[in-house]
Write a protein that binds this DNA or RNA. Sequence first.
DNA 1: ACTGAAACGGAAAACGTTTTCTGTCCGCCC
DNA 2: GGGCGGACAGAAAACGTTTTCCGTTTCAGT
Lengths: 355, 355
Amino acid sequence: MDIREIARRARVSTATVSRAINRVPTVDPQLAKRVWKVVDELGYYPNTQARALVLGRTRIFGLIVSEITNPFFPEIVQTFEDLAVENNYEILLTSTVHDPKRMESSVRRMIERRVDGVAILTFGMEESLIEHLRDRKVPLVFVDVGPNVPGIANIRINYLSGIRQAVQHLAALRHTRIAFVAGPQHLKSAGARREAFKAAMTEIGLEPDLIVVGDHRMEGGMKALLELNRLRDRPTAVLCSNDMTAIGVLREAYEKDIKIPDDLSVVGFDDIHLAEFTIPPLTTVQMSQRDLARIAFNALLNEVESGSHESLNYELVTSLVLRRSTALAVERPPNPAPKAAGETKSRKSPVSDSR
Amino acid sequence: MDIREIARRARVSTATVSRAINRVPTVDPQLAKRVWKVVDELGYYPNTQARALVLGRTRIFGLIVSEITNPFFPEIVQTFEDLAVENNYEILLTSTVHDPKRMESSVRRMIERRVDGVAILTFGMEESLIEHLRDRKVPLVFVDVGPNVPGIANIRINYLSGIRQAVQHLAALRHTRIAFVAGPQHLKSAGARREAFKAAMTEIGLEPDLIVVGDHRMEGGMKALLELNRLRDRPTAVLCSNDMTAIGVLREAYEKDIKIPDDLSVVGFDDIHLAEFTIPPLTTVQMSQRDLARIAFNALLNEVESGSHESLNYELVTSLVLRRSTALAVERPPNPAPKAAGETKSRKSPVSDSR
DNA sequence: ACTGAAACGGAAAACGTTTTCTGTCCGCCC
DNA sequence: GGGCGGACAGAAAACGTTTTCCGTTTCAGT
């Protein structure tokens, strides 16, 4: 069933059918009605491929994420989809799963399907990906990419705002030995979080020297807590580079019978869905996935609809959400409890990056 | 840049370019090489819309889910995507968010984009959805739909297999008062689970009379535990209709200082990712999302590639995965603790997996 | 009544492919 | 050496839309 079928039955030309469907005002209301009736009766829907072919616009946005199963992304995908239906777009979803081959295939698919724009929401982006897309003048929006490439919209995450809140929240609870479990070294976003932590600490006169590195997964968090726990001068609070890490420390704390938050305060980062469901519910720095998706989508929409190539910069601020994994600091005795030598500033525990 | 551009540069006709690209064997190797070279140099990718237009196949599969943020679905989407890239398909992802309007728009989008098939993986499906699609002879695959509609592939879930395992596992741990927290009444899948529970219980001579109903969300689980706890003859184990419910009872147990698994064994259903991360890790009945997605995708692929319209029935079996939320039953005193009647078999030392 | 403009519908070209159908060339067989 | 078939390349039609351009009708103004 095609537009000609409709034309025949409504006794008009295909041109008129097209105009009626697209609500072009120059068509006689009488005729339009006739067309609509037939369209409705037959349950006709225009062929989008054909339309795209002549219009040169597909009304498809590409969305590239790292991994759909990573709890950070479902909310993003959902929001993207919500906005897509609202605006009559489709979304072409692609995941890189950290595999160069997959990344390449991702951009190939985007180009083959002639998407109108693509949002690259994967953290730790290979720069190589963008080349091809940029060549073809496909509107792009990135998150957190380092260099300020012209012609590409950029969402900058304000890590400091939330991390500062977290640190000051802990400080207000009398914590002074605040540890940080960092993410993988190679991740740009992980680096930024670590720097934000250092800044927030020095800002209030605390030494940011209790840093161990994790892997942004539960295992990393578990190991990290073990490591911190061996320290002579153990922290009373730990801030994690992401929520999965925090969940790892929660888990290890449970095994080791360390009570959260009584014995140890922990705060996460990201505010994934899961954070609400941990025991106890996790206090964490929220980096709103909904907002992120919204900003990305609108950036694309803007660029496409207005045809402008100005490529703005956007900012996403982070902020602390309080739940129940933090509490007033408690004096924990130094570890091997040999002689609690009351030195003031003896930060003898070598910390920094293990592994 | 189109196929004609390539034709011009390679000094051949567009027909030859098309043949070369599609590896039609009748083209002279010499010429083919020439074409390939140009294609490569210009980074040309065929326009899929145009191709779809003439081929009558889009190489797009629709995937309708309930909600992307529901932890049950990301794994499905990811697997679907993996299979899509493998087979050179795209996926058109759509969510109903339990909204009739959205459902309608879902099928409209599928039809407009002329997908080659659609997998409807939402539980508790409006029958109305399928009408339009069936009219257009779009290959369909459903999960768990009731009536055996001809022309539609169907994945039937074997709930009993896993639930039987769960019940017998609990029975083996000396539990006799096993409760069930059901899902929402209107959900077909929830009903099936409840029936499976009853069957599994009666099978081994236990009365399935401890059933309360939840809502498949954490809140429902929390309420359910409260309710069960008020009972005179409290259960020592509870089986939940899904994992979120189980997480709810875990949470409420924590609040009420009921130790899991020592005081109460709990097992979930679904085996969502999250189940590994609870405290303690949740023993649950696995309904493999990967397998489900794989079966669905292959069903579609089959129907499309072979053109057959036989519409098979597939089965997905469920099975118990042991983690650490179950243990030997312990004698809990009847609720108001009148007189702890002298017991014969008091297994007060819970053993098994606790550690 | 006649002209001109305004209003509106239709024919046809265009979008970028695939594929059928038609040639052309070549080599082989008789 | 002439005819014939096989191998291969190109011209053109087709896919289902939108839109430009043109033609027809209608109506107002004189």
